[in-house]
């Protein structure tokens, strides 16, 4: 990870990012810049390469070529845990909670990377460790309240209702104190009412000074909260700009509705 001369305004900068699986170009030379404090959306039809792009940013996949710069550092090819430590947190398209852990423990796992206790501290329950545990439990409860599921604190993650699981995943991601939060279809399967609540939550997250980068299918939701949108189709960036511009773009309409529309 080296320092990269970067636009101080941008928190994430992808340069010609490419990910290839065998013969399939899942992400084809995509460049984009996300500014600090904005809500940036990535949309596109199924199989357009959106999640692959997320995975390439967070270190789940090693990009075939291209560059990822986060907060002034080149993080291309970094390991997932290194990326998380630097300040990128994410949620998953198919919720990936720690099923047989309580909600509060799920959030505390998110806090892991900001905790200091070493093996010896834990083995012998040194006062330092105990204080840290108490503090972290408090912080975790605070986050559960923030996303509005405090009353599920001691439930197994897998027993939470679907919508609360999505919220728990967000709380867990927030626990890592990210500068950039990646949300992979956070509103999938939500009722209109839940979508409205989610939009409120995203706005609340912004007030914490966190930049939000999301993948979403629901155009109304995306248009409602994002400042800028990038559209992917077959791994390629086909449009970029503010919602109202993207909505009118001919290629976007074609990609979504087919040529006939």
């Amino acid at each position: 990870m080296s320092e990269a001369p970067a636009d101080r305004d941008s928190i994430l900068e992808l340069t010609e990012l490419t990910k290839r699986f065998g013969g399939l170009l899942a992400v084809d030379s995509v460049s984009l810049q996300i500014k600090r404090g904005e809500v940036f959306a990535l949309i596109g039809p199924n199989g357009a390469g959106k999640t692959t792009l997320f995975n390439s940013v967070t270190g789940m996949f090693r990009p075939t070529s291209g560059r990822v710069v986060f907060d002034g550092r080149v993080i291309t090819g970094s390991k997932p845990h290194e990326v998380a430590r630097l300040g990128i947190a994410r949620t998953f398209q198919n919720i990936r909670l720690f099923d047989f852990m309580t909600a509060v423990d799920n959030v505390k796992v998110g806090r892991h990377v900001r905790m200091k206790a070493k093996v010896w501290d834990s083995l012998f329950k040194l006062p330092r460790e105990r204080h840290e545990e108490e503090r972290v439990t408090e912080e975790a409860m605070e986050l559960l309240r923030f996303v509005g599921i405090a009353r599920f604190a001691n439930h197994y993650a897998r027993n939470l209702p679907y919508g609360q699981q999505r919220r728990l995943e967000i709380a867990r991601a927030l626990a890592t104190e990210p500068k950039l939060l990646l949300l992979d279809e956070p509103a999938a399967g939500f009722t209109p009412q839940e979508k409205v609540e989610l939009m409120e939550l995203v706005r609340k997250i912004l007030t914490r000074g966190i930049t939000v980068f999301l993948i979403e299918h629901d155009m109304k939701l995306v248009m409602g909260i994002s400042e800028r949108i990038v559209v992917l189709d077959h791994g390629e960036k086909i449009a970029e700009g503010p919602p109202e511009e993207v909505r009118k773009d001919r290629r976007v309409i074609e990609a979504y509705l087919g040529k006939s529309a």
Binding site: M60, P80, H81, R96, D99, H112, A173, A175
Partner: peptide, 13 residues
């Protein structure tokens, strides 16, 4: 429970 999610939370698995 989930190694991928654990890594994404910053745990060096």
């Amino acid at each position: 429970e989930d190694e991928v999610a654990a890594a994404a939370m910053g745990i060096n698995t």
